[in-house]
């Protein structure tokens, strides 16, 4: 993985995480980030086909990582006696 690939993957995760939040504008921004990560990956790719396969597979793990982050956040709030 090159630095550009890592940057694209980070953008992809940020995009997915923002899509999972409640505010509409944050979700829109998340969608834009997701599109930007795809564009960045394609622009820096030696082979667009390979990059698309990688991007789609990585998306699954961005979703799961986001779900786990929300789980940890929910448990932390509950442990502190707050209402989630």
């Amino acid at each position: 993985m090159t630095v550009a690939d890592s940057y694209g993957t980070l953008l992809q995760f940020c995009g997915v995480f923002m899509l999972s939040l409640h505010r509409a504008w944050v979700r829109w921004a998340g969608g834009v980030l997701l599109a930007a990560s795809l564009c960045l990956d394609i622009m820096t790719a030696e082979n667009v086909g390979f990059t698309l396969v990688f991007w789609i597979c990585a998306l699954a793990f961005a979703v799961i990582a986001t779900a786990l982050l929300h789980t940890v956040r929910r448990q932390w709030v509950q442990r502190r006696g707050g209402v989630f």
Partner: peptide, 10 residues
């Protein structure tokens, strides 16, 4: 659901 939906395209 999470594992099924997240990796659904794959």
């Amino acid at each position: 659901n999470l594992a099924g939906v997240a990796a659904l395209p794959f």
